[in-house]
Amino acid sequence: MNRTLSVSKTYFEDVKRVQNEIWQDIDVRDKIVIDVGVGESTKKLIELGARVVVVENDPQRIKELNVPIIICDFLNFPFQTRIADIVVFYFTLHEINPNFHASALSIASKIAPQVIIVEPFPHGCPAYEEFAWIWKNAMQSIGRFEEYKPLNYWETILKKVGFKIISRKIVNWKVNIPQEVLEDMVRVTIEDWKKKGVSEIWIDTLQKFLEKKPKMKWSDIAVIVGLFL
Score class of each variant (00 low, 15 high):
T4C: 12
K9G: 04
F12D: 10
D14W: 05
V15D: 02
K16Y: 12
Q19E: 15
D27F: 04
V28E: 09
R29D: 06
D30E: 14
L48D: 02
V54C: 13
V55E: 09
P59M: 06
K63D: 11
K63R: 14
E64D: 13
N66M: 02
V67Q: 13
P68F: 09
P68T: 13
I69E: 14
C72G: 04
D73R: 06
L75N: 11
F77Y: 15
I83Q: 03
A84I: 09
Y90L: 03
L93P: 04
F100S: 09
A112E: 05
P113M: 03
V115A: 13
V118C: 02
P120S: 08
A127S: 15
Y128S: 07
W133G: 00
K136D: 13
S141R: 08
G143Y: 11
Y153Q: 03
W154F: 10
L158T: 00
K160M: 11
F163T: 00
F163L: 14
I166T: 06
Q179I: 10
D184G: 10
D184Y: 07
M185K: 04
E191P: 01
S199N: 13
I203W: 00
T205C: 07
Q207R: 14
P214E: 09
K217T: 06
K217C: 12
A222C: 15
V223W: 00
I224T: 03
